[in-house]
């Protein structure tokens, strides 16, 4: 399946986004700020996650007019979010020719049992995951990129760190098993054996692994890069910060130079404190977005 031309082209675009920052935007004005700051792609959504959290109700795919407006305003790839399991929102986004679809827990799920069968689409998909099993289930359905779920709109990096460490640790563990133990591991993780064998051989996912959910500062972005992220998604962290253009630029620099603390310091100079954050431990279970999908 990883060898089909269609899948290679999908993963190819994910490859091009590496070492960059993908920024959530709700309109053309924000998209232009993101592109000017050096975003490698923008993600169209109806509201940034912290507003979705605050306003409650049902969060759906962005209005078509907003997506068209964003597509017309930037030259970088335009991604857009669809609800989990909502393959018709996804079909509409594909017809709109967005460059990537995020089947996202940030929006209200449309199907509490099934995710979209992504192999049927020409447009590539990214999906969130909290652990290796979840990541491999999404890849089996055709996702061309995985991102940690983190806890979107929280301004708190703790869940993104937990999810990235979990995925990386579980991959290391799989590599330490012998091949005849992998069927049992496959059952434990709820993931296809074929993909377990891939992890066993390569020690990494067969698609790029990005980080999302709670990135609020340049240091947050550099942290998840060190933990194994290949690119960073920033949602509310930019447009809910006191100075979006400055935060956007600083996060871009911190991702490219994440190995050099002096550069991350340079990126952080003169930035005020980031967006207001939430303590995950004090949040009600029903307010968590990461637990949507499986």
């Amino acid at each position: 399946m990883f060898l089909s031309d269609q899948f290679r082209v999908k993963v190819g675009l994910a490859e091009m986004l590496k070492g960059g920052v993908i920024m959530d935007v709700t309109n053309a004005e924000q998209a232009v700020i993101a592109e000017k700051a050096g975003a490698c792609a923008v993600m169209a959504l109806v509201k940034v996650p912290s507003d979705i959290r605050k306003d409650g109700g049902v969060a759906r795919m962005s209005p078509v007019s907003k997506i068209r407006e964003i597509q017309a305003s930037v030259s970088v790839p335009v991604m857009a979010k669809a609800r989990i399991g909502h393959f018709m929102e996804a079909r509409v986004l594909e017809a709109l020719e967005v460059d990537f679809i995020d089947e996202s827990e940030v929006l209200t799920p449309a199907d509490e049992e099934n995710h979209i069968w992504k192999h049927d689409f020409k447009v590539p998909f990214v999906c969130g995951a909290r652990n290796l099993g979840e990541a491999l289930r999404r890849i089996a359905e055709g996702a061309a990129m995985i991102r940690t779920k983190g806890e979107a709109g929280s301004g708190n990096i703790v869940e993104a760190v937990r999810h990235m460490r979990t995925i990386v640790k579980e991959m290391r563990a799989i590599q330490s098993y012998s091949v005849d133990e992998l069927t049992a591991e496959s059952k434990k993780h709820g993931a296809p054996l074929e993909l377990m064998l891939y992890i066993h051989e390569h020690g990494k996912l067969p698609v790029p692994n990005f980080s999302a959910g709670g990135v609020a500062t340049p240091a947050d972005a550099a942290l998840v890069m060190h933990l194994g992220a290949e690119t960073v998604f920033v949602g509310s962290g930019i447009f809910k910060s006191p100075d979006p253009a400055a935060f956007a630029k600083a996060v871009v620099k911190a991702v490219t130079y994440y190995k050099d603390p002096l550069k991350v310091l340079e990126a952080s100079e003169e930035l005020p404190d980031g967006m207001p954050g939430l303590d995950i431990r004090q949040m009600a279970e029903s307010d968590l977005m990461a637990t949507r999908g499986w």
Binding site: M16, K36, A37, K249, V252, K253, T256
Partner: peptide, 15 residues
């Protein structure tokens, strides 16, 4: 390499 030329341009200038 490949990637987004606008993102590269921006950082090449800044740095």
């Amino acid at each position: 390499p490949g990637g987004e030329s606008t993102a590269m341009l921006k950082l090449l200038r800044e740095e």
